[in-house]
Design a protein around this nucleic acid. Structure first.
Lengths: 174, 174
DNA sequence: TTGGACATGTAACTTGTTACATGATTCT
DNA sequence: AGAATCATGTAACAAGTTACATGTCCAA
């Protein structure tokens, strides 16, 4: 049910249209919980029929603006306080490392270098977001900053591991 | 299709029964790609009918031992070389950080401390696996070690981020 | 002898992806 | 006028979870 709560959280921040939520997922929340428009729109309808969000207004191009209700606030706070996060992690890239031994040194190197270059560009993107607005006015912005810095640390750790793996697969024993 | 290739990779290592694969996912591969028995058994049947694995023998308790075929080896190597990993990351715990501002300082602290304690025990588990067998004989074992060390670095990075978040939510401005 | 781990399977359901489909508005 | 982006929705399918179901073997 994380998508449900990700949407509630984004609407707790401020009222948004479905499309604005979609863009918000692409830019920021989607780094922790990806979601496509075909998931978001039906879920918004369900949240609405459950009374956790309201449709505030319809705007140009038939856009619909949603706002969280009091019930919605109660629900997301309940979720944060009372439910344990699902700790499972799925990473295609991490899985592949287990099987690196099936590749010739050059092939393994190529795989790792592709990953490295992806992660470097992701890190650059995160860092440029961090440079954009260094002012931390309120709790909301501090929480966003914590999430961003968590992402940066995580990507950096993955880059260190790739470096170590590259040293290994380039060594004569590989 | 990662489950398919995770199974192929585990069988490229050595022949295994379905149950042995299940346990292998629980202990090690599942850290990168979780899978339950209700997913594994039907997928093994599909891999078999596609000729990527063979049923070697049936043992006690109707257990079935599978081995990868040459076609299976070709397929997993093709997957590693020619397909880009799915870079999407899903983390319920990371998502929650975005919404920490919805909680009172004490509640936020409690959430972070639960996460910290989970990650500390996970780290201890990884480190004890690392201490078990420090001998690296072949490529297969080196690859496994790289995966393990990647996991350790990733958990440590998350712990550092939790520490930073705890400092923040305990500060008077929160 | 019975409880627990071993061992495999299916069914119902939920979640997530890809493809299909359409209309509105703005910019060139 | 046409392309691009904004904006929302559904349908078919694939992947993943939870629950149901059953049989085997060993040890206390």
């Amino acid at each position: 049910m994380s998508l449900r709560h990700a949407l509630l959280g984004a609407l707790a921040d401020q009222p948004r249209t479905g499309y604005a939520l979609l863009k918000h997922f692409e830019q920021s929340l989607g780094q922790a919980w990806p979601a496509s428009h075909s998931q978001i729109y039906p879920e918004l309808a369900r949240l609405r029929s459950d009374g956790l969000i309201d449709e505030l207004a319809t705007g140009p191009r038939r856009s619909r603006t949603y706002a969280i209700t009091e019930g919605g606030i109660v629900e997301i706070r309940r979720w944060l306080r009372e439910t344990e996060p699902d700790r499972r992690v799925r990473s295609d890239a991490a899985l592949r490392v287990f099987f690196l031994w099936l590749l010739e040194p050059k092939e393994a190197t190529a795989l790792l270098e592709r990953e490295q270059s992806y992660l470097r560009s992701l890190l650059a993107r995160y860092e440029s977001i961090r440079e954009e607005d260094p002012v931390l006015r309120n709790r909301k912005q501090r929480a966003f900053r914590l999430a961003l810095e968590g992402g940066i640390r995580s990507v950096r750790a993955r880059l260190v591991s790739i470096d170590a793996a590259l040293v290994e697969v380039r060594s004569p024993e590989w």
